[in-house]
């Protein structure tokens, strides 16, 4: 973009990396043209850094474990069911919840880029965005699960869901045994981010940190 030399290190001036310059250039143009408002950008960043994370998804899962009507609503139309809980950040059109059972384990991936159920899980982990995961999840899901320390019974079918910009998925993990009578709040502590991507299982009661 420029042949300016960025390797100079004089003591008087400041330096911005090529990437920082590109981001500042873009933001200035978009602000001047009225496409973005810097304060609104800050608000978006703040929301994703502090308020939206896997905990949102864990609350959804715990509710589905304890409330059969909500579970039915979630499996019927996850977009609507999740919105009813007050998670309003809508990215993409359809959120689909897929339920793990003893017969079938679900895993999500986005082979094209990194579509992800942001409104319930926050931002994707680095490995989710990596080429090895994006390609291997489809070709060798059991191998990927093994890398994550998950071994499933041979008879359990593994189903991989490829996300798109229109349809994104969240896995409803199986409720661990020995949690009868637990409150939603306590159950939510068992729900890990990876269990909602399908690269993990919900924690067992004994695995909960004291």
């Amino acid at each position: 973009m420029t042949d300016h030399d960025h390797d100079h290190h004089d003591d008087h001036g400041s330096e911005l990396s090529e990437t920082q310059l590109r981001v500042r250039a873009l933001e200035t143009i978009l602000t001047e043209k009225g496409y973005v408002d810097p304060a609104a950008l800050d608000a978006i960043v703040e929301t994703y850094e502090t308020r939206i994370g896997p905990r949102n998804g864990a609350v959804v899962v715990a509710k589905a474990w304890t409330d059969p009507a909500f579970k039915q609503a979630l499996l019927g139309d996850a977009t609507k069911a999740v919105a009813a809980l007050g998670h309003v950040s809508k990215v993409g059109d359809h959120l689909v919840a897929v339920e793990n059972t003893p017969e079938r384990h679900n895993m999500i991936v986005c082979t094209l880029c990194s579509c992800y159920p942001w409104e319930v899980l926050g931002l994707p982990p680095v490995w989710y965005k990596s080429a090895p995961y994006r390609s291997r999840a489809v070709k060798d899901p059991r191998g990927v699960l093994a890398d994550f320390g998950v071994a499933l019974p041979k008879e359990t079918e593994v189903r991989v869901w490829d996300s798109t910009a229109e349809t994104r998925f969240i896995v409803l993990p199986m409720r661990p045994a020995g949690t009868e009578g637990w409150s939603e709040e306590r159950l939510a502590d068992l729900v890990t981010r990876d269990s909602m991507i399908g690269t993990g299982l919900a924690r067992k009661p004994g695995e909960l940190a004291q």
Binding site: T19, V23, L30, L41, I44, V45, Y48
Partner: peptide, 11 residues
């Protein structure tokens, strides 16, 4: 800058 780029796309 990653956060800024992310936010610009959403906006």
């Amino acid at each position: 800058w990653e956060a800024q780029a992310f936010a610009m796309a959403l906006a």
